[in-house]
Design a binder for these strands. Structure first.
Lengths: 210, 210
DNA sequence: CCTATGCAGTAACATGAGTTACAGAGTGAA
DNA sequence: TTCACTCTGTAACTCATGTTACTGCATAGG
């Protein structure tokens, strides 16, 4: 655990804190597509992402989803964090976007470290700041952009997160993430292909110039 | 300042912290409609709301607005807070919804108190938690609700925040807050009136049953 | 090789929301 | 009282998005 931890967080945390994390944390893994936290579940700990990416989703009354943002190495889930401290239920769903490794920190340590380590406090505040920014970006996208622009944004983000210009998704999966219907996505993707911004094959979308 | 501070925050903070707040904070007031923070401005301090209410808005590229949420007595602006710590520019606009009184805390003290007072830490985390929740509510509204449901939600919130079942706004003002057009709001308000949920007069809307 | 299934393409239509335009009512200042 | 201005009501239209329905192709598993 030590090595991965240092690679992802070594420059952030002092030695003693890293020691404590190794001592108290437990390594967890999840495969692409695995559900990590479900809405309404009590949160048992806080994840420090070591490898891979996680997508954070909100759900409406009909059970349909909306992607809020992605988490990457070095990130933690401020939403989870927030839930831990308040000991409330999760308001979001977290799903592994790729194969993922993270360290689970038990809630009990969080309050302690917040008092003890300045670097931990800064990390926590920095996380909140990042997550608030990403929520704002999500709001901007939903409130101010049309579907075609949102779709381009989605494809860009997805390619970046997966470090792969070819996106391996069906139109239906994209529609779920964006809280719209498959037909709409197919229509817009086809338009993007005609504009030479992407190329389409079955189960994959290659980003050319977005 | 002491008296108002104790009324709004006495049950949260210990005596020494209250002393420090009185010593370092400065009382500010704003009249309904006054701009308190503008997008892109550097944030000079963190406001503790004593009296009144503030609305927090996001802006699109055309300069049009979208109401995110309201702040009330006992609240602080986590967004501001987040900006303070990161020393970045404000990502939102804050406008006094009613006549408002608040205490400005200089940035310099915030980091210090976070280390020193557990109650302050809890307050800050609690604020982040509330604000994240409110952002989620805002996202739910925009992404999952139709205009008529959003409008009902807006009217309910507005009546609650102002502690007044009669809302003193023009249709145009509501349209700005909701990032839509006046005609749309007029149309929907008229429908709500026909459903006996509100009654309409010039410059005011009386909530009957929402 | 054949067939069931999932995926993508597309047309035709429904609907909510935004836009333009205009009329009439309310209000305040001269 | 009159005039100018703001606010509201409403019609008629456009447009983006969502829905339904059907097609044919790709692929995997027998």
């Amino acid at each position: 655990m030590r090595k991965e931890l240092e690679e992802a967080y070594g420059f952030l945390f002092e030695k003693e804190l890293l020691d404590e994390i190794v001592e108290n944390g437990t390594i967890k893994t999840a495969s692409a597509g695995d559900k990590i936290i479900e809405i309404g579940e009590y949160v048992t700990g806080m994840p420090l992402l070591i490898k891979g990416a996680i997508k954070i989703l909100r759900e409406d009354n009909d059970g349909d989803e909306l992607l809020l943002y992605f988490l990457e190495r070095g990130d933690t889930c401020a939403m989870t964090l927030s839930c831990c401290l308040g000991e409330t239920k999760s308001e979001i769903r977290a799903v592994a976007e790729t194969d993922t490794t993270f360290i689970m920190i038990p809630i009990s340590k969080m309050e302690e470290w917040t008092a003890k380590y300045k670097s931990w406090r800064n990390f926590v505040f920095e996380s909140y700041h990042s997550r608030l920014s990403e929520m704002l970006d999500a709001i901007d996208a939903i409130a101010f952009l049309n579907m075609d622009e949102r779709l381009m944004r989605y494809l860009r983000d997805k390619a970046k997160i997966n470090r792969d210009e070819t996106i391996h998704s069906t139109h239906q999966q994209i529609a779920y993430d964006m809280h719209t219907s498959r037909v709409v996505i197919s229509r817009l993707l086809k338009k993007l292909e005609l504009d030479k911004k992407i190329s389409l094959q079955r189960n994959q979308i290659k980003v050319i110039d977005l």
